[in-house]
């Protein structure tokens, strides 16, 4: 190992593991002691990454309160030191951390709030593309409909919650107390960038959620309709649900303009 490699290794271990060996590389100067000079870098590292989690997970921070949020940050930093060049990705493993570490894993809503906030971020800067227009739907020949393959816009994120994560996020955002975490049945959500580039989210019925999952899995429209029928009482009702979804999704920009006609 060259001396430059050793110095950099010791520097990084000082930041990530609180190793003190790095201090031997620091020249004595008037003013601050070597340990204080090293500490400036340690503090900067911790403050910078804490700030990223605070910014990316503002409502999770409010839900947890200062002490638990700090405990979470310390645990997360120790478990998952940043390895990507972009700070944008630093918190990607936070939902997993919360679902697998005490005391957070006992409260499933925490992982869900964190995941919801990650999906908001993902939708924010997903790829742009032209969105589906009603005129395109009108131009599809009737016989082609079963083999049409729609595509979700890249910003679309689908989420299922076992807890009141999104409702709690909304309440905290409005400076209201969050509701009870328990909900009677699971809830489904779509997160997507709107045409003014703001990120929006909407509650979905189970039927619409499953239809969107089918589209996400690149299934043709005929299969999407079958999925809808499976979650309603008849084919007719299923078809009505699909048409309602297509209309809402087209209005809100959930589908790309590129539609494929699969070979029958």
């Amino acid at each position: 190992m060259t001396s430059l490699e050793q110095l950099q290794k010791d520097f990084v271990e000082m930041l990530s593991q609180d190793s003190t060996r790095f201090e031997t590389h620091i020249a004595a100067q008037s003013g601050l002691a070597p340990s204080q000079r090293a500490e400036i870098y340690q503090n900067a590292y911790r403050i910078r990454l804490t700030k990223v989690l605070e910014q990316d997970h503002e409502m999770l921070g409010l839900y947890l309160g200062d002490d638990l949020f700090e405990e979470m940050v310390n645990g997360y930093l120790a478990t998952y030191p940043s390895c990507a060049p972009s700070l944008r990705e630093f918190g990607d493993r936070l939902p997993h951390f919360l679902s697998s570490h005490d005391p957070f894993k006992e409260h499933g809503i925490l992982q869900e709030i964190a995941l919801f906030e990650r999906l908001l971020l993902r939708a924010f800067d997903a790829a742009d593309s032209d969105i589906l227009q009603f005129s395109q739907l009108q131009n599809i020949p009737q016989a082609s409909w079963p083999n049409i393959q729609f595509q979700l816009h890249a910003s679309v994120q689908l989420l299922t919650c076992q807890y009141s994560a999104v409702e709690s996020w909304q309440a905290l955002k409005s400076e209201q107390p969050p509701p009870s975490p328990e909900i009677p049945t699971e809830r489904h959500w779509i997160i997507a960038r709107e045409q003014d580039k703001r990120t929006g989210f909407y509650a979905l019925s189970r039927c619409h959620y499953e239809c969107l999952k089918s589209i996400q899995s690149e299934l043709p429209f005929g299969f999407v309709c079958e999925t809808a029928a499976h979650h309603t009482e008849s084919e007719e009702q299923g078809m009505m649900q699909v048409m309602e979804l297509l209309q809402k999704g087209t209005e809100l920009g959930w589908f790309q303009s590129d539609i494929n006609l699969l070979q029958a």
Partner: peptide, 9 residues
């Protein structure tokens, strides 16, 4: 950065 570690500093 060094190896997998990024200090963002």
């Amino acid at each position: 950065s060094l190896g997998d570690f990024n200090s963002h500093d």
